[in-house]
């Protein structure tokens, strides 16, 4: 594998890992202690759908943008060109903004409540940041993927 190919593949893998972590955060609980410590966002959306909670079922839709952005990001991870790079950066910014808001909400409850879901979204934001930095690094004998 030449330098250009490995550079591009590493960039794609970094974006894919970031997207995967955002999606995986939907499967695991966001709280470590207390209410819903064993409930993932998917379980929560299911509960909202059944209507047994005193909350509007449409509230489950707030969970949708984060995995949706992550899935599109994963799909366009290997694409080249300025447009694809701009789309990746915008999706990363949108996902990071949404994730930071959710993590701050969880953190404002109590530092004791941080669960694996909250940790995963932070890791995904950092991975996206690394992928973005990697894409802009220009090494001799290679070009950035975008």
């Amino acid at each position: 594998m030449n330098g250009r190919r490995s550079h591009e593949v590493v960039g794609v893998v970094l974006w894919a890992l970031a997207a995967g972590a955002w999606v995986a955060a939907m499967w695991v609980p966001w709280f470590r202690h207390g209410v819903a410590a064993g409930t993932s966002p998917l379980d929560g959306a299911e509960l909202l759908r059944t209507g047994v909670l005193d909350l509007p079922p449409a509230l489950g839709l707030v969970l949708l943008p984060l995995p949706l952005c992550a899935l599109v990001l994963l799909g366009i991870a290997p694409l080249r060109g300025v447009g694809a790079m701009v789309a990746r950066v915008l999706l990363w910014l949108a996902s990071t903004a949404g994730a930071v808001v959710l993590v701050v909400l969880v953190g404002s409850v109590s530092a004791w409540t941080f669960g694996p879901g909250a940790i995963l979204v932070v890791v995904a934001c950092l991975l996206g940041c690394v992928a973005l930095g990697f894409a802009t690094v220009r090494t001799p004998g290679s070009t950035p993927p975008a």
Partner: peptide, 17 residues
């Protein structure tokens, strides 16, 4: 909890094991 789940009730219950 009687008035719906809020951040304070979540935090309070997080203190109890």
């Amino acid at each position: 909890l009687g008035d719906g789940v809020d951040r304070r009730s979540l935090a309070t219950l997080a203190a109890v094991e």
